[in-house]
Design a protein around this nucleic acid. Structure first.
Lengths: 145, 145
DNA sequence: ATAGACCTTGATGTGTACTTCAAGGCAAGA
DNA sequence: TCTTGCCTTGAAGTACACATCAAGGTCTAT
């Protein structure tokens, strides 16, 4: 398949696919006799993997280091292990940051719903909810953030 | 507290704090008589909130839209709710992508350990581990990605 | 054989989110 | 008073991750 089809299949622009190849995020792509890229499903899978990791916030640089480990034939076991662990730590920290932010937003959303329902139900339960709101407020942090 | 102390307290550079103020991610900061910023705990909390959301991958633009809703006096409850939910979904997807990659890496790391120990233990358990390796391979996707 | 639709590479441009620089002001200590 | 250390603003510079452009090649159809 040519680069345009690959682009349509993955949702990644042709320019980005070329860029990923240049940056070694995907392996060197086979060429047709005239030099055009001939992209197979293995490449498609790798493009999708890259897309996923990029969406999750991993940098090109970290992603390349990560991928190099998988592509390496020799076992530089000690270095590889160290790199893998390092990368794992980066990713876990990122995930934890995300989780913290998710928790924050979820708290906010629940807090919020009370207020909305009060409005939508035309204040029928206003007093009860007012009490709930006060109960929910964190003691030190009276502020909205 | 001055901007340097605020920077040290939050881990955000003084320049970035000024930038956030300019971009309305944090409210206008009070000034001393000579015009220096005088930063209180409310600002510190907002800086931390911004840091958390930025770490979670929210753009400055989206963050400002989100914050504007809170700073507005009218109830934009519907829009606020929609924005919160939208952002939450984005973040949860990112987290899940990251978790998948973490699982992948962890699997690799374990796999790896086996191999290392084999080498270090001078291949004593080679046959057993070879069998394990084969058992571990995923059926449809023989590729590493 | 000429247009149209693909492709190539290398160079340059762009948006985001800051960082760094330049030029200067204020306050305290030697 | 002069150095040190903080601050201010506006402008310009930087890194990342592409996007876009320029100049040209190939293939197919009319």
């Amino acid at each position: 398949m040519n680069i345009k089809e690959a682009s349509e299949k993955t949702g990644v622009s042709a320019a980005a696919i070329r860029y990923y190849e240049k940056e070694s995020l995907i392996p060197a792509i086979d060429r047709t006799p005239v030099g055009n890229r001939d992209i197979d499903d293995r490449i498609i899978r790798r493009i999708r993997f890259v897309t996923q990791m990029r969406a999750a916030g991993m940098s090109i640089e970290n992603l390349r280091r990560y991928i190099e480990l998988f592509d390496a034939q020799e076992d530089n076991t000690k270095e590889q292990k160290a790199l893998l662990k390092e990368q794992l730590a980066v990713m876990e920290e990122k995930r934890d940051d995300l989780q913290a932010a998710i928790d924050h937003l979820n708290y906010k959303l629940n807090h919020f719903y009370d207020h909305m329902e009060a409005t939508e139900a035309e204040l029928r339960q206003l007093e009860k909810q007012h009490a709930e709101k006060i109960a929910k407020q964190t003691p030190e942090d009276d502020d909205e953030f």
